[in-house]
Amino acid sequence: MSGANTLTIEQVISAARQIPSLSVLVMEILASFDKKDVNFTDLVRKIGRDQGLTARVLQVANSPFYGNSGKIGSIKGAVVVLGFHNVRSLVAAAGLINQFPISEIPSSFDRLSFWHHNIGVAVCAHHLAKISGRDESLAFTAGLLHDVGKLVLDAYFNKNFAAVRACCAADDVTMVMAERAELGLDHAQIGYELTRRWRFPAPIQKAIRDHHNPEYEPNSLTDLVHVANVLSHMLDFDDRNSDLMPSLSVAAWTRLDMDHDMLPIQMAEIERQYASMKLLAQE
């Protein structure tokens, strides 16, 4: 592989080093996903001190979906109504989205639409985790960041990424296929390197790495993100960057024990949740 746009993993890792670290608060929240003895009160107090994050979370908490229009005025109030775990996921999401400002550099890659797709995958993964009794917070965060490698490409390898998108359009292939052809690596690998640097819980790192290839190291979180990605494309949560269905791994679908007949009910619920959750990303 030696095209004009080829990237090495070393180039990617050195770009990832330039990305500012996550705030201490967001790191602490992410680390708490793995812990059993979390000091809820302390974490809620710290979140409440961050006005930007608090405002975003309250916007979602007050959306019609939760039926509390305008009534929730503080993080403490949000915890009472939504539960600590949901609030924690929302705060982590708002913090991560802030890390990559939506209109940072001019590019034909639509970042708002990017976040809408990723929020869609987060909502799907969260819902699938809930109905199958798996960890909902991990699923939400892994879904939210599954494509973060694309942002690294857009921010640091703009020219190469433009070639990838041109290839998608010309050959009518998914982005991951175009990346492998043009760059010799893909956004899943890049996302893995970045979340390793950010010391995310290991299952999230692996779910991001394998979301297009769930057979590599089968794991229920990877399966959730893989299936959630397919559902999110199906429900058209991102209509500006891609409108091509990725293929679904039958093995992942079977391992999750998904009931196909229940899918319409799940989709209706996912669409309802998505309508509120997309408020996390706004221009």
Partner: peptide
């Protein structure tokens, strides 16, 4: 039709398409 244009005759994709 557009979303599933390259899904071909993969049985699970056909099933998803029909459900959608």
């Amino acid at each position: 039709e557009r979303l599933f244009r390259v899904a071909g005759t993969d049985p699970i994709m056909l099933k998803l398409r029909n459900t959608l």
